[in-house]
Amino acid sequence: MTNPLGLEGFQHVYSGKVRDLYAPLGPDGAPVPDRLMLVASDRISAYDWVLDTPIPDKGAVLTRLSLWWFDQLADLVPNHVVSTDVPAAVAGRAVIVRRLEMLKLEAIARAYLTGGGLEEYRAKGSVCGVPLPEGLEDGSRLPEPVFTPTTKAPVGEHDLPMSPAEVEELVGADVAAEVSRLTRAILARGNEIAAERGILIADTKVEFGRAADGSGGLVLGDEVLTPDSSRFWPAAAWQPGRSQPSYDKQFVRDWLTSPESGWSRSSGEAPPPLPERVVEQTRAKYVEAYELLTGETF
């Protein structure tokens, strides 16, 4: 396999929309069986497209914020992190993790109604088959977090909403119930902590896996409660009935769907490069979210 970063002692395994996976090599040159290195790039995706324009420092922000959240969630669910001892070339944006068999679904929970969930609610009064109260609008707080999973589509294809029955068919009733419980618990804990820092977490996406031999319970993998996987809103500006200001990549989505970009989601064509000011403002939003949540200077 190619080795895009030229990392000695590691073999490139896979590249997703944002992250790259490498296998550490043992003394015999063979991949270490139960370990991987997860490298967060500065790539950014929107509307299931990986954009041509990177966001500087994004990989480091996502990695450091995920590590902080893994600590806050440690009593709820185990995570995949083994070590932050990584090659200098990827220091700060990579972690050594347990190799897991990942569940083939995106586990999503919503505490507020917006985005694709709002579109489905307006059409059907529900999200992923979960009925919701009447009279909700963009930004409405839900009575309690709801589990609204999607398929995990290959790069370049669209994730599709999954009903509770489809999740059970994919992973079994017991695992489906546990994924739902954990995803909603992660979002609830995230909002408890973020609310003290002036941030509302509207929704979040997490991923779970299991040990390759099937032993043990679910393990939280990938990233958690970052501006890439969640919608962060400033609590002081929250006002249902309109689109909310945000600390996440909604800023990029809004530019892409604005007349200025000249791009249409329905065109089937790749989005245009981001202008420098959108890149700078997006980086600033990511860093601001990190600093508000952790209390640390990036």
Rank of each mutant, 00 (worst) to 15 (best):
S215P: 01
A202S: 13
K285C: 08
G221T: 15
G115S: 12
V13M: 15
L7A: 08
D85Q: 13
R35F: 03
I199G: 03
A74H: 11
G268L: 00
L218H: 04
P4E: 09
K124H: 14
V13N: 10
D213A: 06
A46N: 00
V287N: 08
M102S: 14
D57L: 12
W233S: 11
S258H: 02
L67A: 13
R110H: 10
N79R: 07
G221E: 12
T148H: 01
F251Y: 15
G117D: 04
A188W: 10
A188M: 09
E106N: 13
T53V: 08
A74V: 13
E144F: 12
G209H: 09
D222Q: 05
D248K: 09
T204N: 03
R99W: 06
W238K: 12
E169M: 15
S258Q: 01
K104D: 15
C128D: 00
S15Q: 15
W68G: 07
V18F: 01
P161H: 00
G129F: 00
T282C: 04
E207R: 03
E296P: 07
S267M: 07
A270S: 13
R189E: 12
S41C: 05
D42A: 06
G214N: 09
E192P: 12
V81Q: 03
E106A: 12
A236F: 11
A173D: 12
G16T: 08
G295C: 02
S267E: 10
G125C: 07
L65D: 06
E137S: 14
V279N: 01
P275C: 04
S266A: 15
F208K: 04
